[in-house]
Amino acid sequence: MTAAEAMLRRRSQSRVTPDAPDTAEIVRLTEVAATMADYGSLRPWRLIELRGDARARLGAAFVEASSAEGKHAEKLAGKPLRASLLIAVVASRQENFKVHAWEQDIAAAGVGHALNLLLHEAGWGAMWRSGPLTRTDPVRRMHGLADNEELLGWLYVGGLTEKPSPDRKPAPVESLVTTLR
């Protein structure tokens, strides 16, 4: 399968089964994802696996960050339980006079997107999720982020529940590609 074919076949899987890849498989796939463009070879990122009770602690951090109550709090607390594995994608910025923070964020996001694609290719369902609670203090604390780190979101990972959709047709992008002369 070519990279283009893999990209056309990838779909976000909002519902997944409890099956999930083990840490060894995540490491193997991350080794490949880590070949993405990385200005200065800084590896300004890290991944955090959330399994088991860690997902419930993330739900509690969501509730704390939002000050939600009642049914809304219950729903929010349950969001991280939608998959048995969440992979937090963290930009771990490093001091570097040549490579700006935003360039390091791009490298971290590139690894996250590549891992999403590789998980799909390996037969797993995955969906990148983020949102307004991603950068709140309770969520930061729950992940143990350092001052130089920002959470970019989570890959929710599990087994596929449905037959894969047919390939996507490429989006019309002519108006988004311009030329300066």
Rank of each mutant, 00 (worst) to 15 (best):
S92D: 15
V99F: 01
D147F: 05
T178L: 11
S175C: 06
A6I: 15
A108V: 06
A107L: 04
G153M: 11
E64C: 03
L76Q: 09
A77W: 02
E121Y: 01
R28K: 14
R82S: 12
R11K: 13
P18S: 06
P132W: 06
T161Q: 12
D22T: 09
P18I: 03
R10N: 05
A33W: 02
L119Y: 03
A3I: 15
Q94G: 00
V99I: 15
L85P: 00
V173L: 14
E103F: 01
I87T: 03
A83G: 04
H120C: 08
Y156S: 10
A83Q: 02
R168T: 09
T179F: 14
G158K: 01
A68K: 07
D53Y: 07
V99E: 00
R141D: 12
N116V: 05
P164N: 02
I48E: 06
Y156F: 13
L85D: 01
S41V: 10
A34M: 08
A88G: 12
D105Q: 13
L42V: 09
D19I: 07
S12E: 07
E5L: 12
D22Q: 08
E5D: 15
T30N: 06
D38V: 11
R93G: 06
A34Y: 06
R82K: 13
E64S: 12
H113E: 12
P164Y: 05
K169Y: 00
G40V: 10
S14K: 12
R82C: 05
L50W: 04
S14G: 15
V32Y: 05
L119E: 04
V90W: 00
A73V: 14
D137S: 13
T161A: 07
P172I: 07
S92R: 14
H100R: 15
N96I: 11
G59Q: 01
A24S: 14
T30I: 09
A83S: 14
A24P: 01
L85T: 02
K169M: 08
A33F: 04
H113G: 11
H72V: 10
R55W: 15
